[in-house]
């Protein structure tokens, strides 16, 4: 994962200026390229609002990958077997990689890595709300893979066709790796659900906590999403929050049944008319509370990230100093 609806940035919840239909020739050329499913590359002309929207979305996405390592990283030393430990290390390493692909794509839009890091560390930048929930049990690690990565896949597949070339290419790479993430999570859930009564109860308790926050990951309902029109016109966001959420529920309910787990929604019911599951109301107040910094782990996640960054500073400084020194020595030897 994990990009979230861009509307989660309260600072920018006012609509982006519309691209006027009778804009300048370069604006028309830009929109014609996008309309024809062409790609926009870093040095091509683009509207300033398009650049800013992408920069915000891609950097938020990158931050989410990085912060997303913390809830799972907590369990690496406590994984129940060597096999699970090796798998979890590989999975968390992938998430670091996803963050790097995305920072690299965001940098092509003209913001430096240091600036993005500073925005994250100061709390100014957002990341996916889901990582502000705690991982209390081993089942939560399975739940993150199965549901959180599962939701991420739903969200990211349409982004592979995003109009901005570097973002689309990064997403293709990410999507290739995500299916391992979801399967390893499901595999953990499968073991627990086939296990002892205690293990099964642990799996159920975990699903009870994660189900609603995962549904909220897709972002606010379409009716409240002020950016989606513009983002659709630019072919950044191709599928709406509500459509993605519905698709996720339809795909996930049968998997939960297979696991023998009960989804904590009294209103969840197959609707023969629509061919989709009906589901109960999502607590958006809770979502906004978490997005705005009041979730159970917001402070802990950010503090862990800043601590890791600051404690690594001397390593980065030493590596740079070593490289400079070695280069100077090579020059001297060549002279």
């Amino acid at each position: 994962m994990y990009t979230q609806s861009m509307d989660t940035d309260p600072e920018t919840r006012n609509p982006v200026a519309k691209v006027s239909a009778v804009g300048r020739p370069e604006e028309q050329r830009f929109q014609a390229t996008v309309d024809a499913e062409g790609k926009i590359e870093p040095r091509d002309w683009m509207p300033e609002a398009y650049r800013k929207t992408l920069l915000r979305q891609i950097s938020q996405h990158a931050h989410s990958e990085i912060i997303g390592m913390f809830p799972e990283g907590n369990w690496i030393s406590r994984a129940p077997s060597l096999k699970r430990k090796a798998i979890l290390i590989a999975k968390v390493q992938d998430e670091a990689g996803h963050g790097l692909y995305l920072y690299s794509a965001a940098e092509t839009l003209g913001q430096s890595r240091d600036e993005m890091m500073a925005a994250l560390h100061s709390g100014r930048a957002k990341y996916s709300s889901i990582f502000n929930y705690p991982t209390l049990t081993w089942a939560d690690v399975g739940m993150i893979g199965w549901l959180v990565d599962g939701a991420a896949i739903m969200n990211q597949i349409p982004l592979c066709r995003c109009s901005y070339g570097p973002y689309a290419r990064a997403m293709i790479r990410v999507c290739k790796e995500e299916s391992f993430h979801q399967r390893q999570g499901f595999d953990i859930m499968l073991s627990l659900s086939k296990g002892t009564a205690d293990q099964k109860a642990m799996a159920q308790e975990s699903l009870d906590r994660w189900w609603w926050p995962v549904l909220a990951m897709f972002g606010p309902p379409d009716a409240d999403s002020v950016h989606s029109g513009q983002s659709a016109q630019w072919k950044i966001k191709r599928v709406s929050n509500d459509e993605l959420r519905q698709k996720f529920i339809d795909a996930t309910v049968p998997q939960a049944e297979l696991l023998g787990l009960r989804i904590p929604d009294e209103k969840l019911k197959w609707n023969t008319q629509t061919g989709h599951y009906d589901f109960g109301p999502i607590d958006w107040d809770d979502f906004w509370r978490v997005v705005n910094g009041e979730g159970p782990c917001n402070k802990e996640r950010l503090a862990a990230r800043v601590k890791a960054y600051e404690e690594g500073q001397w390593v980065r400084d030493a590596a740079m100093a070593y490289a400079v020194k070695r280069k100077a020595r090579q020059h001297k030897e060549a002279a």
Binding site: T12, R113, D114, A119
Partner: peptide, 23 residues
């Protein structure tokens, strides 16, 4: 986007060292 971001700043927090070169 905040005012200092518009100016390409980092909110008053300059990075400690210059970031590593890009490859």
């Amino acid at each position: 986007m905040s005012e200092d971001e518009k100016q390409g700043g980092t909110g008053g927090r300059r990075p400690l060292v210059q970031e590593w070169p890009l490859w």
